[in-house]
Protein backbone atom coordinates (compact mmCIF):
# COMPACT_ATOMS: atom_id res chain seq x y z
CA UNK A 1 0.00 0.00 0.00
CA UNK A 2 1.21 3.44 -0.89
CA UNK A 3 0.48 6.46 1.16
CA UNK A 4 -2.44 8.60 0.17
CA UNK A 5 -0.35 11.78 0.19
CA UNK A 6 2.17 10.39 -2.27
CA UNK A 7 -0.69 9.40 -4.55
CA UNK A 8 -2.20 12.86 -4.42
CA UNK A 9 1.18 14.42 -5.19
CA UNK A 10 1.63 12.03 -8.13
CA UNK A 11 -1.79 12.96 -9.45
CA UNK A 12 -1.08 16.68 -9.17
CA UNK A 13 2.22 16.20 -10.93
CA UNK A 14 0.58 14.23 -13.72
CA UNK A 15 -1.96 17.02 -14.12
CA UNK A 16 0.86 19.56 -14.27
CA UNK A 17 2.62 17.54 -16.96
CA UNK A 18 -0.62 17.40 -18.92
CA UNK A 19 -1.06 21.16 -18.53
CA UNK A 20 2.47 21.76 -19.79
CA UNK A 21 1.84 19.51 -22.74
CA UNK A 22 -1.39 21.37 -23.56
CA UNK A 23 0.39 24.69 -23.28
CA UNK A 24 3.04 23.44 -25.67
CA UNK A 25 0.40 22.01 -27.99
CA UNK A 26 -1.51 25.26 -28.06
CA UNK A 27 1.46 27.22 -29.32
CA UNK A 28 3.14 24.62 -31.51
CA UNK A 29 0.39 22.54 -33.03
CA UNK A 30 -1.77 23.60 -35.93
CA UNK A 31 -5.55 23.86 -35.90
CA UNK A 32 -5.96 20.32 -37.25
CA UNK A 33 -3.89 18.62 -34.55
CA UNK A 34 -5.43 20.77 -31.82
CA UNK A 35 -8.84 19.66 -33.00
CA UNK A 36 -7.78 16.02 -32.65
CA UNK A 37 -6.63 16.72 -29.09
CA UNK A 38 -9.99 18.34 -28.37
CA UNK A 39 -11.84 15.36 -29.78
CA UNK A 40 -9.74 13.06 -27.59
CA UNK A 41 -10.83 14.99 -24.47
CA UNK A 42 -14.51 14.85 -25.44
CA UNK A 43 -14.29 11.17 -26.34
CA UNK A 44 -12.71 10.43 -22.97
CA UNK A 45 -15.64 12.11 -21.20
CA UNK A 46 -18.14 10.13 -23.28
CA UNK A 47 -16.32 6.84 -22.88
CA UNK A 48 -15.98 7.25 -19.11
CA UNK A 49 -19.67 7.98 -18.72
CA UNK A 50 -20.72 4.98 -20.82
CA UNK A 51 -18.26 2.77 -18.99
CA UNK A 52 -19.80 3.79 -15.67
CA UNK A 53 -23.24 2.76 -16.95
CA UNK A 54 -22.31 -0.33 -18.95
CA UNK A 55 -18.92 -1.48 -17.70
CA UNK A 56 -19.33 -0.87 -13.99
CA UNK A 57 -23.06 -1.13 -13.35
CA UNK A 58 -23.77 -3.64 -16.08
CA UNK A 59 -26.62 -1.73 -17.73
CA UNK A 60 -26.47 -2.21 -21.48
CA UNK A 61 -27.44 1.28 -22.57
CA UNK A 62 -27.45 2.47 -26.17
CA UNK A 63 -28.93 5.87 -25.44
CA UNK A 64 -25.76 7.91 -25.35
CA UNK A 65 -26.43 9.83 -28.56
CA UNK A 66 -29.75 10.96 -27.10
CA UNK A 67 -28.16 12.41 -23.98
CA UNK A 68 -25.42 14.01 -26.06
CA UNK A 69 -28.05 15.62 -28.27
CA UNK A 70 -29.81 17.06 -25.23
CA UNK A 71 -26.55 18.47 -23.91
CA UNK A 72 -25.54 19.81 -27.31
CA UNK A 73 -28.84 21.57 -28.03
CA UNK A 74 -29.15 23.01 -24.52
CA UNK A 75 -25.63 24.40 -24.57
CA UNK A 76 -25.93 25.77 -28.11
CA UNK A 77 -29.18 27.61 -27.39
CA UNK A 78 -27.60 29.18 -24.32
CA UNK A 79 -24.36 30.35 -25.91
CA UNK A 80 -25.65 31.67 -29.23
CA UNK A 81 -26.46 35.38 -29.28
CA UNK A 82 -30.08 36.48 -29.84
CA UNK A 83 -29.03 38.04 -33.15
CA UNK A 84 -27.54 34.74 -34.31
CA UNK A 85 -30.72 32.92 -33.39
CA UNK A 86 -32.78 35.49 -35.27
CA UNK A 87 -30.77 34.65 -38.38
CA UNK A 88 -30.88 30.88 -37.87
CA UNK A 89 -34.55 30.31 -37.26
CA UNK A 90 -35.72 30.98 -40.80
CA UNK A 91 -38.46 28.36 -41.09
CA UNK A 92 -40.28 29.24 -37.92
CA UNK A 93 -39.54 31.82 -35.26
CA UNK A 94 -38.01 30.47 -32.08
CA UNK A 95 -40.06 30.54 -28.90
CA UNK A 96 -39.38 33.76 -27.01
CA UNK A 97 -37.69 31.87 -24.16
CA UNK A 98 -35.41 30.10 -26.65
CA UNK A 99 -34.72 33.40 -28.38
CA UNK A 100 -33.88 35.21 -25.14
CA UNK A 101 -31.99 32.44 -23.33
CA UNK A 102 -28.35 33.15 -22.80
CA UNK A 103 -25.64 32.13 -20.38
CA UNK A 104 -21.86 32.05 -20.05
CA UNK A 105 -20.17 28.98 -21.49
CA UNK A 106 -19.56 27.21 -18.15
CA UNK A 107 -23.18 27.62 -17.13
CA UNK A 108 -24.32 26.45 -20.55
CA UNK A 109 -22.24 23.27 -20.37
CA UNK A 110 -23.40 22.52 -16.83
CA UNK A 111 -27.00 23.17 -17.90
CA UNK A 112 -26.54 20.75 -20.81
CA UNK A 113 -25.30 18.11 -18.37
CA UNK A 114 -28.05 18.76 -15.83
CA UNK A 115 -30.89 18.58 -18.33
CA UNK A 116 -29.43 15.39 -19.79
CA UNK A 117 -29.23 14.02 -16.22
CA UNK A 118 -32.82 15.02 -15.53
CA UNK A 119 -34.00 13.28 -18.68
CA UNK A 120 -31.85 10.29 -17.69
CA UNK A 121 -33.61 10.19 -14.35
CA UNK A 122 -37.07 10.40 -15.89
CA UNK A 123 -36.55 7.79 -18.62
CA UNK A 124 -34.38 5.64 -16.38
CA UNK A 125 -37.13 5.18 -13.81
CA UNK A 126 -39.27 2.99 -16.08
CA UNK A 127 -36.51 1.66 -18.37
CA UNK A 128 -34.09 0.38 -15.75
CA UNK A 129 -36.61 -2.20 -14.62
CA UNK A 130 -35.77 -3.96 -17.86
CA UNK A 131 -32.76 -6.23 -18.01
CA UNK A 132 -29.89 -6.76 -20.42
CA UNK A 133 -30.83 -6.72 -24.09
CA UNK A 134 -34.28 -5.28 -23.48
CA UNK A 135 -32.71 -2.27 -21.82
CA UNK A 136 -30.42 -1.88 -24.84
CA UNK A 137 -33.38 -1.86 -27.22
CA UNK A 138 -35.39 0.53 -25.06
CA UNK A 139 -32.53 3.03 -24.65
CA UNK A 140 -31.81 2.82 -28.38
CA UNK A 141 -35.46 3.72 -28.91
CA UNK A 142 -35.09 6.60 -26.50
CA UNK A 143 -32.13 8.04 -28.43
CA UNK A 144 -34.13 7.78 -31.66
CA UNK A 145 -37.07 9.55 -30.03
CA UNK A 146 -34.81 12.41 -29.02
CA UNK A 147 -33.47 12.66 -32.58
CA UNK A 148 -36.95 12.63 -34.12
CA UNK A 149 -38.08 15.22 -31.58
CA UNK A 150 -35.16 17.46 -32.53
CA UNK A 151 -36.33 17.17 -36.12
CA UNK A 152 -39.90 18.05 -35.27
CA UNK A 153 -39.81 20.90 -32.79
CA UNK A 154 -38.38 23.57 -35.11
CA UNK A 155 -39.22 26.39 -32.73
CA UNK A 156 -36.62 25.07 -30.29
CA UNK A 157 -34.16 23.12 -32.41
CA UNK A 158 -34.58 24.72 -35.82
CA UNK A 159 -35.68 21.32 -37.17
CA UNK A 160 -33.58 19.51 -39.74
CA UNK A 161 -31.49 22.62 -40.44
CA UNK A 162 -29.93 22.53 -36.99
CA UNK A 163 -27.61 25.21 -35.72
CA UNK A 164 -24.66 26.72 -37.52
CA UNK A 165 -21.94 28.99 -36.25
CA UNK A 166 -22.15 27.93 -32.63
CA UNK A 167 -19.47 29.96 -30.82
CA UNK A 168 -16.31 27.90 -30.44
CA UNK A 169 -15.67 28.53 -26.78
CA UNK A 170 -14.66 24.94 -26.21
CA UNK A 171 -10.91 25.40 -26.44
CA UNK A 172 -8.29 22.93 -25.35
CA UNK A 173 -8.40 24.15 -21.73
CA UNK A 174 -12.15 23.82 -21.32
CA UNK A 175 -12.18 20.39 -22.92
CA UNK A 176 -9.36 18.98 -20.87
CA UNK A 177 -10.62 20.72 -17.74
CA UNK A 178 -13.96 18.98 -18.09
CA UNK A 179 -12.19 15.78 -19.04
CA UNK A 180 -10.16 15.86 -15.81
CA UNK A 181 -13.26 16.70 -13.81
CA UNK A 182 -15.12 13.72 -15.28
CA UNK A 183 -12.11 11.50 -14.68
CA UNK A 184 -11.82 12.62 -11.05
CA UNK A 185 -15.57 12.28 -10.42
CA UNK A 186 -15.88 8.80 -11.89
CA UNK A 187 -12.60 7.50 -10.45
CA UNK A 188 -13.73 8.61 -6.97
CA UNK A 189 -17.06 6.86 -7.41
CA UNK A 190 -15.61 3.66 -8.80
CA UNK A 191 -12.94 3.37 -6.11
CA UNK A 192 -15.32 3.98 -3.22
CA UNK A 193 -17.57 1.48 -1.51
CA UNK A 194 -20.39 2.94 -3.61
CA UNK A 195 -18.41 1.74 -6.63
CA UNK A 196 -18.16 -1.68 -5.00
CA UNK A 197 -21.93 -1.84 -4.74
CA UNK A 198 -22.29 -0.93 -8.42
CA UNK A 199 -19.88 -3.75 -9.24
CA UNK A 200 -21.98 -6.03 -7.02
CA UNK A 201 -25.12 -5.14 -8.98
CA UNK A 202 -23.30 -5.87 -12.23
CA UNK A 203 -21.99 -9.25 -11.08
CA UNK A 204 -25.03 -10.64 -9.27
CA UNK A 205 -28.27 -8.78 -8.76
CA UNK A 206 -30.00 -11.20 -6.36
CA UNK A 207 -26.93 -11.33 -4.14
CA UNK A 208 -26.71 -7.55 -4.18
CA UNK A 209 -30.34 -7.38 -3.07
CA UNK A 210 -29.62 -9.82 -0.27
CA UNK A 211 -26.76 -7.56 0.83
CA UNK A 212 -29.24 -4.78 1.51
CA UNK A 213 -28.59 -2.80 -1.67
CA UNK A 214 -31.56 -1.01 -3.15
CA UNK A 215 -30.50 -1.95 -6.65
CA UNK A 216 -33.10 0.07 -8.49
CA UNK A 217 -32.06 3.26 -6.72
CA UNK A 218 -28.36 2.64 -7.37
CA UNK A 219 -28.88 1.74 -11.00
CA UNK A 220 -30.86 4.92 -11.48
CA UNK A 221 -28.14 6.92 -9.75
CA UNK A 222 -25.41 5.45 -11.91
CA UNK A 223 -27.51 5.98 -15.05
CA UNK A 224 -28.19 9.61 -14.11
CA UNK A 225 -24.53 10.36 -13.42
CA UNK A 226 -23.64 8.73 -16.74
CA UNK A 227 -26.27 10.82 -18.55
CA UNK A 228 -24.92 13.95 -16.91
CA UNK A 229 -21.45 13.42 -18.35
CA UNK A 230 -22.88 12.36 -21.71
CA UNK A 231 -24.70 15.72 -21.71
CA UNK A 232 -21.48 17.53 -20.85
CA UNK A 233 -19.67 15.72 -23.65
CA UNK A 234 -22.42 16.62 -26.10
CA UNK A 235 -22.34 20.27 -25.02
CA UNK A 236 -18.58 20.51 -25.54
CA UNK A 237 -18.85 18.71 -28.87
CA UNK A 238 -21.43 21.22 -30.12
CA UNK A 239 -19.16 24.15 -29.36
CA UNK A 240 -16.19 22.27 -30.79
CA UNK A 241 -17.67 21.40 -34.18
CA UNK A 242 -19.80 24.59 -34.32
CA UNK A 243 -22.53 22.89 -36.38
CA UNK A 244 -25.17 20.51 -35.08
CA UNK A 245 -28.24 18.98 -36.64
CA UNK A 246 -30.38 15.94 -35.81
CA UNK A 247 -28.50 13.72 -38.27
CA UNK A 248 -25.36 14.09 -36.21
CA UNK A 249 -26.98 12.18 -33.34
CA UNK A 250 -27.69 8.98 -35.21
CA UNK A 251 -27.01 5.60 -33.66
CA UNK A 252 -23.50 5.63 -35.14
CA UNK A 253 -22.51 8.24 -32.56
CA UNK A 254 -23.43 5.89 -29.73
CA UNK A 255 -21.66 3.14 -31.59
CA UNK A 256 -18.41 5.12 -31.70
CA UNK A 257 -18.46 5.57 -27.92
CA UNK A 258 -19.44 1.95 -27.39
CA UNK A 259 -16.55 0.86 -29.61
CA UNK A 260 -14.10 2.88 -27.51
CA UNK A 261 -15.46 1.43 -24.27
CA UNK A 262 -15.39 -2.16 -25.52
CA UNK A 263 -11.91 -1.82 -27.03
CA UNK A 264 -10.58 -0.26 -23.85
CA UNK A 265 -12.16 -2.89 -21.66
CA UNK A 266 -15.53 -2.92 -19.94
CA UNK A 267 -14.93 -2.01 -16.33
CA UNK A 268 -11.57 -0.30 -16.84
CA UNK A 269 -11.36 3.50 -16.73
CA UNK A 270 -7.73 3.36 -17.79
CA UNK A 271 -8.81 1.33 -20.80
CA UNK A 272 -11.44 3.92 -21.71
CA UNK A 273 -8.89 6.74 -21.58
CA UNK A 274 -6.29 4.86 -23.61
CA UNK A 275 -8.82 3.65 -26.16
CA UNK A 276 -10.24 7.17 -26.54
CA UNK A 277 -6.78 8.47 -27.39
CA UNK A 278 -5.89 5.57 -29.68
CA UNK A 279 -9.16 5.37 -31.57
CA UNK A 280 -9.53 9.11 -32.06
CA UNK A 281 -6.03 9.28 -33.52
CA UNK A 282 -6.46 6.13 -35.60
CA UNK A 283 -9.73 7.37 -37.07
CA UNK A 284 -7.90 10.44 -38.34
CA UNK A 285 -4.74 8.67 -39.36
CA UNK A 286 -6.64 6.04 -41.31
CA UNK A 287 -7.88 8.73 -43.67
CA UNK A 288 -4.89 7.93 -45.88
CA UNK A 289 -6.62 4.74 -47.04
CA UNK A 290 -9.30 6.92 -48.57
CA UNK A 291 -6.76 8.87 -50.63
CA UNK A 292 -5.50 7.63 -53.99
CA UNK A 293 -2.59 5.24 -53.48
CA UNK A 294 0.21 4.88 -56.02
CA UNK A 295 2.04 1.62 -56.38
CA UNK A 296 4.67 2.32 -59.01
CA UNK A 297 2.75 3.62 -62.00
CA UNK A 298 -0.44 1.94 -60.92
CA UNK A 299 -2.99 4.14 -59.20
CA UNK A 300 -5.54 2.81 -56.71
CA UNK A 301 -8.49 5.15 -56.53
CA UNK A 302 -9.39 6.18 -52.99
CA UNK A 303 -12.73 4.92 -51.71
CA UNK A 304 -14.59 7.19 -49.30
CA UNK A 305 -15.61 5.32 -46.14
CA UNK A 306 -12.77 2.83 -46.55
CA UNK A 307 -11.37 3.66 -43.11
CA UNK A 308 -14.60 2.53 -41.48
CA UNK A 309 -14.17 -0.82 -43.21
CA UNK A 310 -10.62 -1.09 -41.88
CA UNK A 311 -11.89 -0.10 -38.47
CA UNK A 312 -14.68 -2.63 -38.47
CA UNK A 313 -12.16 -5.32 -39.34
CA UNK A 314 -9.93 -4.19 -36.47
CA UNK A 315 -12.89 -4.32 -34.10
CA UNK A 316 -13.75 -7.77 -35.35
CA UNK A 317 -10.24 -8.98 -34.54
CA UNK A 318 -10.37 -7.43 -31.08
CA UNK A 319 -13.65 -9.21 -30.31
CA UNK A 320 -12.27 -12.47 -31.69
CA UNK A 321 -8.87 -12.49 -30.05
CA UNK A 322 -9.05 -10.19 -27.05
CA UNK A 323 -12.64 -10.06 -25.92
CA UNK A 324 -11.90 -8.34 -22.61
CA UNK A 325 -10.50 -5.36 -24.49
CA UNK A 326 -7.20 -3.56 -24.07
CA UNK A 327 -7.11 -3.50 -20.27
CA UNK A 328 -9.65 -6.12 -19.23
CA UNK A 329 -10.80 -4.91 -15.85
CA UNK A 330 -7.35 -3.75 -14.77
CA UNK A 331 -6.61 -0.16 -13.85
CA UNK A 332 -3.54 2.00 -13.89
CA UNK A 333 -2.06 2.37 -10.40
CA UNK A 334 0.83 4.50 -9.30
CA UNK A 335 2.26 1.54 -7.36
CA UNK A 336 2.44 -0.32 -10.60
CA UNK A 337 4.48 2.40 -12.32
CA UNK A 338 6.70 2.75 -9.28
CA UNK A 339 7.20 -1.01 -9.17
CA UNK A 340 8.38 -0.87 -12.77
CA UNK A 341 11.05 1.69 -11.87
CA UNK A 342 12.07 -0.25 -8.79
CA UNK A 343 12.59 -3.44 -10.73
CA UNK A 344 14.70 -1.62 -13.25
CA UNK A 345 16.74 -0.16 -10.41
CA UNK A 346 17.40 -3.60 -8.96
CA UNK A 347 18.69 -4.91 -12.27
CA UNK A 348 21.29 -2.17 -12.37
Amino acid sequence: MMERKLKIISNIMATAVLAMFLWWAQTNLGAYHTQILNLIAVNIILALSLNLIYGFTGMFSLGHAGFMAIGAYTCSILIMTPAQKEMLFILQKAYPWVQEAGAPFVVAVVAGGLIAALVGLVVGAPLLRLGDDYLGIATLGFAEIIRVLANNIPRITNGALGFKGIPGYANIWWNFGWCLFALYFIVRIVNSNFGNTLMAIRDDEPAAKAMGINIFRYKLLSFTIGSFFAGIGGALLASLVSTIDPKMFLFTLTFNVLMIVVCGGLGSLTGSVLASIAITILLEWLRFVENPIFIGDFELKGIPGMRMVVFSLALLFIILFRREGLMGMREFRWEWLLGLFRKRGEVK
Partner: peptide
Protein backbone atom coordinates in the same frame (compact mmCIF):
# COMPACT_ATOMS: atom_id res chain seq x y z
CA UNK B 1 -20.44 -14.01 -5.11
CA UNK B 2 -19.54 -10.81 -6.92
CA UNK B 3 -17.11 -12.76 -9.07
CA UNK B 4 -15.11 -9.93 -10.64
CA UNK B 5 -14.60 -8.12 -7.35
CA UNK B 6 -11.83 -8.97 -4.94
CA UNK B 7 -12.50 -10.97 -1.78
CA UNK B 8 -12.17 -7.77 0.25
CA UNK B 9 -14.57 -5.88 -2.02
CA UNK B 10 -17.16 -8.62 -1.60
CA UNK B 11 -17.15 -8.17 2.16
CA UNK B 12 -17.09 -4.37 1.84
CA UNK B 13 -20.27 -4.53 -0.23
Amino acid sequence: LFGNGTVLQNVMV
